Deep mutational scan, measured.
Amino acid sequence: HHGSGALAALHADGPHAGLPVTRSDARVLIFNDWEERKRSEPWLRLDMSDKAIFRRYPHLR
């Protein structure tokens, strides 16, 4: 199991509170979210491209 239990660094406060600090933090969040959702949506594709990251977390651009 590759990303399970990996912890992402999140901004503690300010405008980005609760959001990932780096792209690799964002990838951890996206992976964990996908892993949760694919139980009920097995067709869901995992997209951890930069484009997917920016779409979801525009502050990382």
Rank of each mutant, 00 (worst) to 15 (best):
H11E: 04
K38G: 04
L44C: 07
S40N: 12
F54Y: 13
K38A: 07
S40P: 03
D13R: 05
A9K: 12
E36Y: 12
S4I: 11
R37Y: 06
A17N: 08
R55P: 01
A17D: 03
S49H: 01
S24T: 09
P15Q: 08
L46M: 12
L46N: 01
R56N: 06
L44V: 08
Y57C: 00
E35R: 12
R27W: 04
R39S: 12
S4A: 10
R45C: 15
A52G: 13
E36C: 10
A17I: 11
D13C: 11
H11Y: 14
H1K: 12
S40Y: 15
P42S: 04
P42N: 03
P15A: 08
D25V: 12
H1W: 14
E41M: 10
H16M: 10
S40T: 14
F54K: 03
N32R: 15
L29W: 03
L44E: 12
F31A: 06
W34A: 00
R37Q: 09
W43P: 01
R27F: 03
E35M: 15
H16F: 15
K51H: 08
I30P: 03
S24W: 14
A6N: 13
D50S: 08
M48L: 11
S4D: 11
H11Q: 03
S24L: 08
S49M: 01
H2Y: 09
P42T: 05
R27K: 12
R61P: 05
Y57D: 01
E36A: 10
G18Q: 09
K38S: 08
G5A: 15
W34F: 11
H2W: 12
A9N: 15
L19I: 02
D25Y: 07
Y57A: 00
P20A: 01
D25N: 01
P15L: 14
A26L: 01
A17C: 07
A12F: 11
I53S: 00
V21E: 06
L60D: 00
L29M: 10
D25F: 02
G18W: 03
L19P: 02
E36K: 08
P20T: 01
A17W: 06
K51A: 13
L29Y: 03
I53R: 00
W43A: 15
D47V: 03
G14D: 03
R37F: 02
D25Q: 06
H16I: 04
P58L: 02
H59T: 04
M48I: 13
G5M: 12
G5C: 14
H2K: 13
P42I: 03
A52H: 06
T22W: 08
L44Y: 11
E35P: 01
E35V: 14
E36W: 09
G5N: 10
F54D: 15
L10K: 06
G5Y: 10
W34T: 04
A12P: 10
I30Y: 02
A12G: 07
L44G: 03
R23H: 10
L7G: 13
R27S: 06
